[in-house]
């Protein structure tokens, strides 16, 4: 019996990575849920918007790195982030003016917009791969670890190491800041309240003098910010590869739907539910159980429920279970 090592192993391989991944999903899902609430459709291009935002940030990061510009122990990407957000906002507003606005004017059924967003997704996907290529890109610099496994072992004298990466710490801190800022914006500012009002009742918003086009523009700008931040954090934590971002769409949608579409709190909760279940279900518990089992009783198998290749199946399964038993999501979303 060695519960301390077991807990450390669990923290190291499950809790910390899942918290960081959950925060990334939550920020992504917030973007999806905002588009759903205000523009009334699920934006399939969100994953590729994240890829575009991350790509712009990477390009600016490389530029800064070539100038010798650094941010002490933090990744240079943080300096480049505002530029990435600006470029993504410009792209999204351009897409809205060029594509979505036409369908809004036609009062198109939302399902048409879903399909339109799928078209936008392919274009953005192509754009990103055309500019930066399909390969893995690494743009992380600065200090890699807040606590590395070896330092932890030396500090505590335990057998198990606990690594806490800078990117993970950064993700968690950024997520808290972003979520707090977003909630403050939506609940305290005039523009934020007008967005909630528009999402609640379009006609009445119009009657109150709220300009729908302005609300839509603000929404795209905020979504550009959220998508770029999520994309960059994911890229720093793992690596940047356009196709991975396309695949991220599934867990992000799962998170938004599990939490309740249209509900920002739901998106955050959903992100963590999906991340923790994906990682818990695909983690090999052999080591953790080994610490708990009396000597010689360690399990022979890996004690892994599903291979990591199936992690998307976990998102799917949770999505289906939630839709079966609580179709409106954990926090009552718009689908009432």
């Amino acid at each position: 019996m060695d519960p301390i090592n077991a807990i450390v192993a669990l923290l190291n391989f499950v809790v910390i990575p899942a918290t960081a991944y959950g925060a990334q999903l939550a920020i992504g899902a917030l973007g999806v849920t905002m588009i759903y609430g205000i523009l009334r459709f699920s934006n399939f291009a969100h994953g590729d918007t994240m890829a575009f935002g991350a790509m712009c940030t990477i390009l600016v990061t490389w530029l800064f790195q070539s100038w010798g510009l650094h941010l002490w122990v933090l990744p240079t990407a943080l300096l480049a982030l505002p530029f990435g957000i600006a470029a993504t906002a410009a792209l999204l507003i351009f897409t809205d003016r060029a594509v979505y606005r036409f369908y809004r004017r036609q009062k198109a059924a939302p399902v048409i917009l879903v399909i339109v967003s799928m078209g936008v997704m392919f274009v953005m996907n192509g754009l990103v791969r055309f500019i930066i290529g399909v390969e893995d890109q690494n743009f992380l610099d600065g200090e890699r670890f807040i606590i590395s496994a070896r330092t932890f072992k030396e500090m505590t004298g335990l057998d198990e190491g606990l690594a806490f990466k800078t990117s993970q710490g950064l993700t968690i801190v950024t997520a808290v800041v972003v979520v707090a800022a977003l909630f403050w914006f939506l609940n305290r500012t005039r523009t934020g309240k007008s967005m909630r009002a528009f999402s609640d009742n379009e006609d009445l918003a119009l009657l109150s003098g709220i300009n729908p086009e302005k609300v839509v523009t603000y929404t795209w700008i905020i979504v550009a910010g959220l998508a770029t931040i999520a994309g960059v954090l994911y890229g720093l934590d793992k690596s940047f590869k356009p196709f991975t971002y396309f695949q991220l769409l599934l867990p992000i949608f799962a998170a938004a739907i599990v939490g309740g579409l249209g509900s920002p709190i739901g998106a955050i909760a959903g992100g963590f539910v999906i991340a923790f279940s994906e990682i818990t279900v695909t983690y090999a518990f052999k080591k953790v159980l080994g610490y708990f089992a009396p000597g010689g009783w360690e399990p022979d198998s890996l004690m892994q429920l599903l291979s990591t290749d199936y992690k998307f199946a976990v998102s799917f399964a949770i999505l289906i279970i939630v839709l079966l038993f609580k179709p409106t999501g954990l926090f009552k979303g718009k689908s009432v």
Binding site: R40, Y103, Q106, L206, L261
Partner: peptide, 26 residues
């Protein structure tokens, strides 16, 4: 009459917001 407004029988609320559309033509 407007083909854009035909939702092809879609009832999937996980991709489309069921909020009724505005009928105003401001």
């Amino acid at each position: 009459k407007n083909a854009w407004q035909d939702d092809r029988g879609n009832k999937d609320r996980s991709i489309t917001n069921p909020k009724p559309p505005s009928d105003a033509e401001p």
